[in-house]
């Protein structure tokens, strides 16, 4: 019963999370020690109904964590295309980059998550953006041998 709001978000426990919010509404966008919000936890763990619930309550999908991680990058890295689509409908920065110059598209390509790659491309993700190490999405797909990723990008 003493799980944090972030843990409840990751577990998709909407009713328990709602109890926390009823006591302290500021928890909605509270950031943990690394700067992750409940929405980021839900996005990272693929909890789509929780993502929708938090957004409906007014959670800010544009918040960045301490090393500039975003909910969109977390969902893309996890391969959760439905959540990627929901976040893209909420006006997030599609090309936000973080501590190693990763963008949502780079994470989707790295994880070989084709549906996420295509959702991001459909919404105009910058295909030329290179990671700090100089890899563009196409170069990354080739280096990792992700054929489908290459096809989507090309």
């Amino acid at each position: 019963d003493n799980l944090s709001i972030h843990q409840l978000a990751a577990h998709g426990e909407i009713s328990q999370l709602e109890v926390h919010l009823s006591k302290d509404s500021s928890l909605l966008n509270s950031q943990d020690e690394r700067g992750f919000t409940p929405l980021m936890w839900a996005a990272a763990f693929g909890e789509i109904m929780m993502v929708e619930f938090l957004l409906q309550k007014g959670a800010d999908p544009r918040t960045l964590a301490r090393e500039r991680e975003s909910a969109l990058s977390l969902a893309s890295a996890g391969g959760f295309a439905d959540i990627v689509n929901i976040l893209l409908q909420h006006g997030v920065d599609i090309d936000s980059y973080d501590w190693n110059g990763g963008t949502p598209l780079l994470y989707a390509v790295r994880g070989n998550h084709i549906k996420c790659v295509e959702a991001l491309l459909r919404c105009g993700a910058d295909i030329t953006f290179e990671a700090d190490s100089g890899y563009s999405p196409v170069a990354l797909a080739v280096a990792l041998g992700h054929k489908k990723g290459q096809e989507s990008l090309l």
């Binding site: 843990q7 690394r34 110059g101 990671a131 890899y135």
Partner: peptide
């Protein structure tokens, strides 16, 4: 029901293990 604690989300290093371009 007891929920197990998840570890904090993290993003993988994009190019770990790949040759420098």
């Amino acid at each position: 029901s007891q929920l197990s604690l998840y570890t904090s989300p993290s993003l993988p290093n994009i190019t770990l293990g790949l040759p420098a371009t």
